[in-house]
Design a protein around this nucleic acid. Structure first.
Lengths: 206, 206
DNA sequence: TCGATATGACTCGCGAGTAAGTTACCACGG
DNA sequence: CCGTGGTAACTTACTCGCGAGTCATATCGA
C-alpha cells in the first residue's frame, strides 16, 4: 500500500525515469524558457521530487543540456539529411523546411528549446547550442552564397548580413508554424512554396 | 570637503539625475537584457546607490518602462515619419529601414531594449512593449498585403505568416547593423538596396 | 543486507525592495 | 550677518522571498 507522498522507491528504472523527466522538462522549458523555469516546476510536473532530478542530471544546466542534445540532434540530423538530397538554391531551402516540418510534427517543444533566448551560454549546454547554431549558419551561408553569386554580388559583408536574414526567415517560418498547431506539415510546406513564389516572382516547383 | 563615499546630497537636480540613470540603464539593459541585470548593477555603473533608483523610478520594471518609452517613441516616431513620406511597396520598406538606421545612429541601445526577449510581459512596461509591437505589426501587414495581392495570393494565413517573416527580416537587418558598429547608416542603406535587388531580382532605385 | 530508487527538510546566496538616518542648500526671522 | 528649520538629494544597512543545490533518511526488490 503506497500512499500519495511517501519516501522510498516506486520501482521505476533509471532509464525510464530519465526519459520521462526529459519529456516533461522539454515541455516546461519550451513553454516558460530556461531562465523562468525552476527545477521544482519540472519535478512537480513530473510527479517526483527535486533531488531525484539532481541525482540523475546533476544540475539545472545539465538537465537542459540533455534536452538541447535531443533537440539539436533531431534538427541537425534532419537538416543534413535534406542537404544530402541534392536539391539546390530555392528548392533546397524548401526541401529543408519541409523536412523540418515533418520532423517537428508533434514535437513542437524541440524548436522552442533549441531557440530559447534565455538559454545559458556557458557550460556544456552553451557548447551544444553553439555547435548547433554554427552548423545551421554554415548551411545557410552555402545557400545564400549561391543566390548572391547569381545576382553578381560578392561582397563579404553582404553575404554575412544576408545569411543572418535568411536564418531568421527560416526560423520565423518554423516558429510561425509551431504557433499554429492546426496546420499540418504538408499545408505548411505548400504555404512556403506559395510565399517563395510570390516573393521571388518565379515558380519553384521544378 | 567631500570624501569619495559619503551620505548626503551631491547637488544634482532630480531631472538631471533621472536622465543620467536612464542613459546608464539603457546601456546596461541593452547589454545584458532585462532579466539578467540587477538594479545594483545599474546603480554601480551610474556611481549612485540603489535606493535612489527606487526613489525616482519605483521599481526595476518602472525603470525599464521609462527606457522602453524612450526607445519605442523614437522608433515609432521615425517609422511613422517614414510612412508619411508616401513611398510604396519595396521602396517604402527601404525608406523605413534608412530612417531607422539614421535615427539609431549612436543610440544602438535603443534597438536592443525594444527587442529584449527577457522584457517583462505584465505591468506597464509590458503594455508599452505591446503597443509598440502592435504598431509595427500594422505597418508590416500593410506592406506585405500589397506584395501578396500583387502576386495574386489572398490567403489570410499566408498574409499572417508573411507578415511575421517580414517583421523578422526587418528586425534582423537592423540587429545586424547594430552588431557592426563600423558600418554607417548610408553604407547600410546601400547594402539593403543591393540585397533587396538581388533577392527580388529587380531594381528598386525608382 | 545491499544497492537502487526515492524524498522531506534543510542551507545558502542573490536580488528586489525598505527603513532610517545623513548632508547640503535655501528661505526666513531676528 | 547669523542662526534655524524645512526640504531635496543621497546612503548604509538592513528584511524577505525565491530558487539552486545538498544531506540524511526511508522503502523495496533481489
Amino acid at each position: 500500500m503506497t500512499s500519495a507522498t511517501r519516501t522510498g522507491t516506486k520501482g521505476v528504472a533509471r532509464a525510464d525515469r530519465e526519459q520521462q523527466i526529459l519529456d516533461v522538462a522539454g515541455g516546461v522549458f519550451a513553454e516558460q524558457g530556461f531562465a523562468a523555469t525552476s527545477v521544482a516546476d519540472i519535478a512537480r510536473e513530473a510527479g517526483i521530487s527535486k533531488p531525484l532530478i539532481y541525482n540523475y542530471f546533476g544540475s539545472k544546466e545539465g538537465l537542459f543540456e540533455r534536452c538541447l542534445l535531443e533537440a539539436s540532434s533531431l534538427l541537425i540530423g534532419e537538416i543534413e539529411r535534406s542537404a544530402r538530397l541534392g536539391a539546390v538554391g530555392l528548392r533546397r531551402a524548401l526541401v529543408t523546411l519541409e523536412g523540418v516540418f515533418a520532423a517537428l510534427d508533434g514535437r513542437a517543444w524541440v524548436w522552442a528549446v533549441a531557440n530559447d533566448p534565455t538559454a545559458p551560454v556557458s557550460d556544456a549546454a552553451g557548447d551544444v547550442l553553439g555547435s548547433y547554431r554554427r552548423r545551421l549558419e554554415e548551411l545557410a551561408t552555402e545557400g545564400v552564397g549561391e543566390l548572391l553569386a547569381l545576382a553578381g554580388d560578392d561582397d563579404a559583408l553582404d553575404l554575412d548580413a544576408m545569411t543572418t536574414v535568411w536564418s531568421n526567415v527560416f526560423t520565423s517560418l518554423v516558429t510561425w508554424w509551431c504557433e499554429h498547431p492546426g496546420v499540418t506539415p504538408d499545408q505548411m510546406s505548400a504555404r512556403c512554396e506559395r510565399l517563395f513564389g510570390a516573393v521571388f516572382g518565379m515558380s519553384v516547383s521544378g
